[in-house]
């Protein structure tokens, strides 16, 4: 298992009317080939911005810091033209809403083959053959006919499959999937997730799965990183982070999930509102909502500390972390 992408201290500021606003604040993680890397967190925690930063698709006026090393090359400092060539070929992305992520007026053929022809220099015939292959791979029935169709002729789940086929066309090594199932029916979700999992294993593809749905992550991800207010609060193997979560925020997320074996148990919501980028508290951003808050939490940003079981977490109050820090 080799590390494909290594992100260190990634920072993103977005341009606002009141000056640059930090959205992602020093995020680090590693993604390995053939594995599903899960990035979890509530809306506004900076998950999507992290992904867009990796592809260089941030909105105009955004500034970035830190590094993202893919094959010894730093994505964050690449020049624009070079960066563009990595998109689709090395890092591809599937977006949340399949209804709006495909061009409504272009045929599936055009959308599925234009980057094959541009990036890989295929002829129209080669690209069409590859397109049929791709649609078969993502289980679109009758792929030849589908190529001639337009997005509005397909259901949400089918469109998401087409999006995945488009993303996979140039055989990228990292597939970033931003909430790929959020906009879909539950029954369709499972199919899309199985597809991602199969692709990941068959093609030795690294998948970065961004979601707020911890159920999805615990089923699919090999490692999980939990973000809150632009920072990583806990990360490690899924079994540890999801099964035996230690950080108060992660635990809060897990406790707020419905549990099939304890249907009569009341769900425990996390008190308070998530901190938006404009109003992030000082110190540990979670401290105003935290049951275990102690005075230092409100002033010092807790560092990520690696503890025995292979996880890292940022909580000075946790007894294990406290004992290590001593």
């Amino acid at each position: 298992m080799t590390t494909l992408l290594s992100v260190r201290d990634l920072r993103v500021w977005l341009d606002t009317a009141r000056g640059p606003l930090p959205i992602v604040d020093g995020v680090s993680f590693d993604i390995s080939a053939g594995q599903v890397f899960g990035l979890a967190g509530e809306s506004g925690s900076g998950k999507t911005i992290t992904a867009l930063a990796l592809l260089g698709l941030l909105p105009a006026g955004a500034r970035t810091g830190g590094s993202a090393i893919l094959d010894g090359r730093d994505l964050m400092t690449m020049r624009t033209a070079q960066r563009r060539r990595t998109r689709g070929r090395e890092v591809a992305m599937v977006f949340q809403d399949p209804m709006s992520s495909l061009h409504p007026m272009l045929t599936i053929e055009r959308q599925l083959t234009e980057h094959l022809r541009y990036q890989l220099g295929m002829s129209r015939k080669e690209a069409d053959e590859r397109a049929v292959e791709l649609l078969t791979e993502v289980r679109i029935p009758n792929p030849e006919a589908a190529l001639r169709g337009h997005p509005h002729q397909f259901s949400g789940g089918m469109r998401q499959r087409i999006q995945i086929a488009i993303a996979l066309a140039c055989e990228p090594r990292l597939l970033v999937a931003d909430e790929p199932t959020t906009a879909l029916d539950v029954t369709v979700q499972a199919g899309i997730l199985r597809l991602l999992h199969r692709l990941c294993q068959e093609k030795d593809l690294a998948v970065m799965l961004i979601t707020h749905d911890l159920g999805v992550l615990s089923a699919l991800a090999d490692t999980v990183t939990v973000m809150y207010a632009g920072r990583v609060v806990e990360s490690g193997p899924t079994a540890q982070v999801m099964g035996r979560s230690r950080h108060p925020y992660t635990r809060g997320l897990v406790d707020s999930l419905p549990h099939p074996e304890a249907a009569d148990r009341a769900l425990v919501p996390i008190a308070g509102e998530p901190a938006g980028p404009e109003s992030r508290p000082a110190g540990c951003a979670f401290h105003p909502r935290c049951r275990y808050m102690e005075p230092p939490c409100a002033t010092a940003v807790p560092p990520l500390i690696r503890i025995d079981d292979g996880r890292e977490m940022a909580c000075p109050v946790d007894p294990l972390v406290a004992s290590l820090a001593r």
């Binding site: 698709l57 998109r87 591809a92 992305m93 992520s101 061009h103 234009e114 541009y118 488009i166 140039c170």
Partner: peptide, 12 residues
């Protein structure tokens, strides 16, 4: 979103 999709394909 589809404009972002197009850019994510690495098109000029």
């Amino acid at each position: 979103d589809y404009v972002r999709t197009a850019r994510a394909k690495g098109l000029p």
